[in-house]
Amino acid sequence: MKLIINADDFGLSHGQNYGIIDCFINGVVASTTLLSTGAAFNHACSLAKKHPTLDIGVHLSLDLGAPLSDCHMISTLLDSTNQFNRYNLEANHIDVNPEEVYTEWRAQIEKVIAIGLTPSHIDSHHHIHMMVNIFPIYLRLAREFQLAIRFHPRKWSEQQIQQALPLLKGLRYADQFLNSFYGTTITPNFFAELNLEEGKSYEMMCHPAYLDQWIMEHSSYNIQRSVEAETLQASRTRQLIQQRGINVINFQQL
């Protein structure tokens, strides 16, 4: 059983960054995805360079932070103030020009590379990459930059899943994605109750952070982030993972 514990939102705020780094040094986080549009992007990059064994990916965004591309090149992604649109996240399609998504997301990946980091994987804020009209753009970028992906078609029909599977050939991704370490499930016992199969790989999403003003003012998911940070560094968590024979890996080891 292989488990990637990936911390999303690296670069969101200083408190988020420190929480993720401490969960890497003292806990069970092995991988993180960096938010190029985040307010604390440079701070996150500085920390990442001090810890070169932390596996870095890119947390692609269409609805958080400041867009990187010229507003005239990505007009369908922006509101009247030239900030990112807000989307119905319960849908599986968003009304945008996919080529503009490609332009913006390519800029977000290139920003990480330009600062001297080498990403190994990509996912997205609010899982927007799994919108059916955006997913082909996501795969296109994964192939261009040779990046592993996050695949979790929970809102797709069986027909859509079967049509997508051939498109994944040659790309690296965990056999199953776990988004259940969230809210009330955040305890060390989560790892005791995980239903994992021998011979399979899993990716688990998390958001550990220390609370700061940015998180408290901008995120409704706030106190839970600090609970995650404590849980992912708890000795009980490490003990359970070891007792169950779970091999914690990163995307480079897939």
Score class of each variant (00 low, 15 high):
228 E>N: 09
226 S>G: 02
240 L>R: 09
125 H>I: 05
123 D>C: 08
74 I>K: 00
156 W>K: 02
53 T>V: 06
251 F>W: 03
171 L>V: 14
212 D>K: 01
158 E>C: 01
160 Q>S: 13
157 S>K: 01
83 Q>T: 13
17 N>K: 04
66 A>K: 15
107 A>V: 00
165 L>Y: 10
86 R>N: 13
174 A>N: 07
198 E>I: 14
245 G>K: 12
191 F>C: 02
150 R>S: 03
47 L>N: 01
114 A>T: 09
14 H>K: 15
181 F>P: 00
183 G>V: 03
44 A>H: 05
199 G>W: 10
38 G>D: 04
45 C>W: 07
120 S>Q: 06
244 R>D: 13
206 C>Y: 01
215 I>C: 11
129 H>V: 01
183 G>I: 02
207 H>T: 04
174 A>V: 01
74 I>Q: 00
180 S>I: 00
120 S>A: 10
240 L>D: 09
132 V>I: 14
62 L>K: 06
155 K>A: 07
57 G>V: 09
48 A>N: 07
106 R>Y: 02
173 Y>N: 07
23 C>S: 15
24 F>V: 03
157 S>H: 05
82 N>S: 15
236 R>E: 14
39 A>T: 10
18 Y>G: 00
10 F>K: 01
145 F>D: 05
147 L>Y: 06
249 I>R: 10
216 M>P: 00
44 A>Y: 06
110 E>C: 05
158 E>Q: 14
75 S>C: 13
72 H>Q: 13
201 S>M: 10
190 F>V: 09
53 T>Q: 14
51 H>M: 04
91 A>E: 15
8 D>Q: 03
